[in-house]
Amino acid sequence: MPGRHDERRLGQPYPQMTQDSPAAYWQDIGWNSLFLQLPPSWQPAVIYPAYLYFEQDGQPVLEVKWQKIHGRFSAAKILAQLGKSLEPGVEPEHWDLPEDLHSHLASYTVTGFQLRQEHSHSHGLVIFCPACNRVTLLQWYIDTIREHHQLARILGSFRDHSEGSDRLWTIYDIRAHLPGEAELQSHEFLPGRYTLCFDLKDTAITLYRFKPAAVLLNRKNIGEFGRSLMDRQPLEEDKDRAFWQFKAEGMELLLAKARRNPVFQWMRLWHEPRHNVILGIRAEGKRRMKSGILDRLCANYTSLEPH
């Protein structure tokens, strides 16, 4: 029943991938509370904190936009807003989501729509979750009838909030579990260098991913490579990992405070030869963070097989 809170579904954590399951061939997307499973050929092309746009061979296939609702939810109001953003003469039309697809979203309030534009015909859903008060606009450009199975699986994987205290962040070939309070401040996906910056209890946490590691570490070791990120000598260093830690004391502490520089800096870089990648986490702030938290962040940050 649409709109009914389904304890069973909401109680499920994010689906876990196993090597044996056919889901292993699909990619997980976990971004700012949203979770979806998508075909591996669907590539994220535009990424904002609350908006994702996917392409397949350069053609649009899916757009997702989401936000918290303050006040009462009204699908009509959201569709009217969507209509205003379209070219003149194009209006969202009512569309009924097939019943079997609807069953995948039983715990949400779902309103279907379609857009007939000059060069494209798309379908979409306005999905409201009463548990987290979040509304998601899901719009796809694939044929709903021909790609029915694919769509069923995508909708079946849809989650707009996590049940546990951690939040999954997975996109392209990185996967991290961060505490739910970690808020995304900025992100950058440049070829060869991904950077995700979070704010976690007044500590700036940065996730790094560098590729191809074999080339980047061709003439330098990981400690030397890390010096472009933190201009200090590593505290510990071996072939595939390096660790930096700095805590300002005495005069340095006074200077750091006067200049509003971080008093505490921590960074770990490690090389995963199997995926030809260098991963890293950096933390800095005004107070020392418990090393247990940082160790847990590192343990929960991994690279995946690229698509």
Binding site: Y172, G192, K211
Partner: peptide, 18 residues
């Protein structure tokens, strides 16, 4: 290029075309 360096499709495409 993608398979040689184990990159994402999009990452390889942007690097090579640029």
């Amino acid at each position: 290029f993608q398979s040689m360096h184990r990159l994402n499709r999009r990452e390889a495409e942007i690097s090579v075309t640029t």
